[in-house]
């Protein structure tokens, strides 16, 4: 007999029952569809133990690593604590320890958490201001012993939150943040695989984190980063990225501009996604990361797939802009 803990309640599973059956039998409201592990409507996450491997078939490797599973095909081997995705409402406290301009309108904000953190670079968290205003930002650094989190904050002219970060937030001030969420991150392994990273604007934040993570794990397949903007003021961290490209022979950095710019020795003219897909027309076996402007991300996902990338190996973060 195994027990399923969900939403502060404990349910005992009857013999050979799936987790979904146990929950439904106990009148828990659950989203579900095919009940055979195909449609993934009932996706859940195990909070304590790794779920049985057969209940993770068909999920992205990033989801498997985060203990997501399909309750409709999960016959529990041990007691499990489970949750539905994105239902957690827990906040953590941090202090601002660094704030500096990466460009005219992008700020690097660094927070130090008061307790240890679990996250992957490229995931996003919600930041919450004292008055309750919440904004989502992607994490641009890899896990470190200091429990630090870094974000790229684009200052929008009428941005309630971003203007406050620019004008009022100071080093030493507290800021709350949520659990890290999202499946757009690097998973260790297949170190020989080619990686394609395409981003616009502060979509660079998750990509920079993913790049750091891949290099940290000594990924030796080619890593191609295309960062796009309209004009040069929209790009940032060019020096860091150029230096990384010099240091790591398998890393290539292509800054792209769509506006009329004369300096095409430094920049490639055109949209970052088009330049990337023209250059690499066969993406079979590649891992693709797409971040930034939502329309670009969704269009690029389709293109990457049509050019041969497997859907399971296309990771997107359409939240940042």
């Amino acid at each position: 007999m195994t027990r399923i803990k969900f939403d502060d309640q404990i349910f005992e599973s009857e013999n050979e029952e799936t987790v979904l059956q146990t929950l439904l039998r106990n009148n828990v409201q659950m989203p579900y569809g095919c009940k055979t592990g195909a449609c993934q409507c009932c996706l859940m996450r195990s909070i304590d133990n790794s779920p049985p491997a057969e209940s993770q078939v068909g999920l992205k490797d990033t989801q498997q690593k985060q203990n997501y599973f399909l309750p409709c095909i999960c016959k529990p081997e041990n007691d499990m604590s489970v949750e539905l995705p994105n239902t957690k409402n827990v906040w953590f406290e941090s202090d601002v320890i660094e704030k500096r301009y990466l460009s005219e309108n992008v700020i690097l904000l660094k927070l130090k958490s008061k307790e240890p953190l679990a996250f992957f670079a490229g995931q996003f968290v919600n930041l919450r201001r004292h008055d309750g205003i919440i904004r989502s930002y992607s994490i641009s650094n890899i896990h470190n012993a200091e429990h630090e989190l870094e974000f790229h904050i684009r200052i929008l002219p009428n941005g309630n939150f971003s203007r406050w970060v620019a004008d009022e937030l100071e080093i030493g001030m507290p800021l709350s943040f949520s659990h890290a969420q999202g499946s757009c991150h690097y998973v260790e392994g297949k170190l020989e695989q080619s990686l394609l990273l395409i981003g616009t604007g502060t979509g660079l934040a998750p990509l920079y984190g993913i790049l750091q993570d891949a290099l940290f794990h000594e990924h030796y397949g080619e890593i191609h980063l295309f960062h796009g903007s309209r004009d040069a003021s929209g790009l940032y961290m060019e020096n860091e990225l150029t230096q990384l490209a010099q240091k790591y022979p398998n890393f290539y950095y292509t800054p792209c501009l769509t506006g009329d710019n004369l300096d095409f020795e430094t920049y490639t003219k055109g949209r970052a996604n088009q330049i990337a897909f023209d250059k690499f027309q066969k993406l079979n076996g590649w891992r693709v990361f797409l971040c930034g402007q939502p329309e670009m991300v969704l269009q690029s996902k389709r293109t990457a797939y049509l050019q041969g990338a497997s859907l399971k190996e296309i990771y997107i973060d359409p939240f940042s802009s």
Partner: peptide, 14 residues
Amino acid sequence: NMDKQAAKQKAFLT
């Protein structure tokens, strides 16, 4: 949503 659509295609093909 392409991931959801692919999952539906899988159910259909099965």
